[in-house]
Nucleic acid binder design. Structure first.
Length: 645
RNA sequence: GCCGGUGUAGCUCAGUUGGCCAGAGCAGCUGAUUUGUAAUCAGCUGGUCGGGGGUUCGAAUCCCUCCACCGGCUCCA
């Protein structure tokens, strides 16, 4: 007999070789019907795998991340089986579960899948799922595995096997499909009741653009048909919040092929909104001791050779601009830091001057690959809310923490609760990608880790995500459909001060090298506004929104009164307009609601007589009558409250 | 940049197997209406069917090519 300990620390005895599924059945038949996988000590196992020792056991169902993972991983196998039946000869790469579903990378040998194929595959998957195929785990030797996939002529699997070093190789068999796989899998395919293959994409084998591009199919499955329907509705809802769609509808920004792709045109309302964000940040930064500067949009090529950017990115940048006579070359500026270094150098600096915090809403130009362009989140011209802090080495931590405070303050003011703080470090195996000494890298990496610890932040660490000159702390948020974007960033840099030979005179009257911190709380105005649009669905905070109110006269007779009301509101710093169209009030309300204007003020006979306004709040309806002054106070209180430091 | 998809009026979309002058709704303009909490009515304007090339008696429709956009991959100072 063996002892099995459950999460609540209770212990039960079972005979050796018992499976998690049998354990579940011993607890309740209902549980057994829902068990997808199990955690045995620290490893997630098949629920059908025999347990031979005393262990800690935890059962996973669809309600657990691990349960979903097993379900989707198994779904990838099921899809592969369906494809092997429908498209014999297809070679398989990898097919993992992902956050929302799964994918499988496959080599269709030149055949281009069409969307109708997906439907066929879905149907075949459902057919196979109903057969209640079991996932059978087999331990094999490397030689056996190699022999099997050699026979199958699957070079991708062979390459994977070849790279396996830990000795144990497992295969999983379900129906006619056998895959190299670590597992775990769900007990059988009958748990998969609903299937949706979402899209087809190309993906380089092993993520290497020099290698063959395979066909990737993304899909998702559910244990109930209704779950799938709900999920699809969710996706549709998310698409409605897409900043590209809302940006057009709310007239915030536009793109024109005549101007060029990736070059956003900020429309009046978008400019107004962005301007308010900038003003807001300027105020915050002023309080935090930043000095605002302005630098040109171009700079001599030599400047970027000094900084190292030219060597690193010169080929992939907009190419230098030649002057007509002197033969000089200028780059569109891809970064503001070299310019700021030159500002640092305009005069000798004393340790007493530090930290020197230079801030600029600096517009930069980067030649992003055409396939990378994406609405306002990935563009070729964008404005960073940039600043560079030049400080003494002993000031790094305090400055770093002060920047974190600014970022957190901004996120809080804008209700960005759903972000992750990611510490981006060097790729340990690929150090030649970076410039600067090991010693400085370590100092910088430690400074970031210490600062985040001190702030008690939840962080993730990503290796290989650092900038080429230094590690970063990045604030990541998701867009409407779950894609991750970097917004705020804070970066420690020992390198540029070196390259620009920046110095300050210390209290010892000796020359010392300052350290730089690059930081941008929004990241870029473009990307920030994009994410803001998606997070708010276009319903911006009152203090930020381009139009706070719109006055809707019942008929032309009340236009004069409306103008008086607008004047009074303008005098109280409230911005808005009057809908003077000869439309019915229902139409005016509808249009204003669709424009996400926070307050609709209706004025007609009744309001004129009583000298007030009827207020309707966007999204929630009639709030009743208000005196203009009382309403103005209400608005201003709301604005003040959301901007409190 | 790579793989796949899409491209018809400002927007959302129809347009049978290639065949009369390319359609609708919304928006816009003009007029009527003077309206009470999510779409008043009528008329009009508006498209080199993404650009270029080809096949054909004839192309929005078939082929080639370029461009843009969409979903991924790779990249992201």
């Amino acid at each position: 007999m063996i002892n099995i300990t459950f999460p609540d620390n209770s212990v039960r005895q079972y005979s050796e070789g018992v499976t998690a599924l049998e354990v579940a059945r011993s607890i309740s038949e209902g549980l057994a019907r829902n068990v997808l996988a199990a955690k045995v000590n620290d490893q997630v196992w098949d629920a059908t795998r025999p347990i031979n020792n005393d262990v800690n056991l935890r059962l996973f169902t669809w309600d657990n991340t691990e349960g979903k993972a097993a379900m989707w991983h198994s779904s990838a196998h099921l899809m592969a089986e369906a494809i092997e039946i429908l498209f014999p000869g297809v070679k398989f790469g990898i097919g993992p579960d992902i956050e929302n579903g799964f994918y499988y990378d496959m080599d269709f040998g030149g055949y281009a899948l069409v969307p109708e194929d997906l439907v066929k595959i879905e149907n075949k998957m459902l057919e196979l799922a109903r057969q209640k195929q079991q996932f059978i785990r087999k331990d094999v030797t490397k030689a056996d595995a190699t022999a099997f996939f050699t026979e199958k002529k699957d070079e991708y699997k062979l390459e994977l096997i070849n790279d396996l070093t830990d000795g144990t190789i497992t295969l999983y068999e379900s129906g006619v499909f056998v895959d190299l796989c670590r597992g775990p899998h769900i007990p059988d395919t009958s748990f998969i009741k609903a299937v949706k293959l979402l899209n087809i994409a190309g993906a380089y084998w092993r993520g290497d653009e020099k290698r063959k591009q395979l066909t990737r199919i993304y899909g998702i499955t559910f244990p109930k048909q209704k779950d799938l329907a709900d999920y699809l509705v969710l996706l549709e809802e998310a698409k409605k919040r897409d900043h590209r769609k809302l940006g057009k509808e709310l007239e915030l920004f536009a793109f024109s092929q005549n101007v060029g792709s990736g070059l956003p045109l900020w429309l009046p309302k978008g400019t107004d909104l962005r301007g308010r964000l900038e003003t807001f940040l300027r105020e915050v930064q002023k309080k935090a001791g930043y000095l605002q500067v302005i630098t040109p949009h171009i700079g001599n090529v030599e400047l970027y050779k000094t900084s190292g950017h030219f060597q690193k990115y010169g080929k992939d940048s907009f190419q230098p601009i030649d002057t007509p006579v002197e033969g000089e070359q200028f780059m569109l500026k891809p970064m503001n830091c070299p310019h700021h270094c030159e500002i640092y150098k305009v005069k000798p600096r004393s340790y007493k001057d530090l930290p020197l915090r230079l801030a600029e809403f600096g517009t930069v130009y980067r030649y992003e690959q055409s396939g990378e362009l994406h609405g306002l989140t990935r563009v070729r011209c964008f404005t960073q809310d940039d600043a560079h802090i030049f400080c003494r080495p002993d000031q790094i931590k305090q400055e770093f923490i002060a920047v974190i405070d600014i970022v957190l303050h901004i996120f809080k003011t804008l209700n960005f609760t759903d972000f992750t703080a990611q510490i981006s470090l060097r790729d340990q195996n690929n150090r030649e990608k970076y410039i600067g000494s090991d010693e400085n890298w370590e100092k910088a990496e430690n400074a970031i880790i210490e600062a985040t610890k001190e702030k008690g932040m939840n962080t993730t660490i990503e290796y290989g995500e650092a900038a080429f000159y230094g590690p970063k702390l990045d604030f990541m948020v998701r867009d409407a459909i779950g894609r991750k974007w970097q917004l705020g960033t804070i970066q420690v840099d020992y390198n540029l001060p070196e390259r620009f030979e920046l110095e300050y005179v210390g209290s010892d009257n000796q020359r010392h090298r300052p350290v730089m911190i690059h930081r941008a709380p929004f990241g870029s105005m473009e990307r920030f506004v994009a994410v803001l649009i998606e997070h708010t669905g276009g319903k911006f905070p009152l203090w930020l929104t381009p139009e706070q109110v719109i006055i809707l006269p019942i008929s032309e007779k009340f236009h004069d009164y409306a103008k008086n009301v607008l004047n009074l509101l303008n005098n109280s710093d409230i911005r808005g307009s009057i809908d003077e169209r000869s439309e019915k009030i229902g139409k005016k309300i509808r249009d204003a609601e669709l424009q996400r204007i926070p307050y609709l003020l209706i004025v007609g006979e009744k309001e004129v007589t009583e000298g007030n306004i009827s207020v309707r709040k966007q999204g929630s309806g009639d709030m009743g009558s208000f005196e203009v002054e009382a309403f103005a106070n209400l608005i201003n209180d709301e604005v003040k409250k959301s901007l409190e430091y």
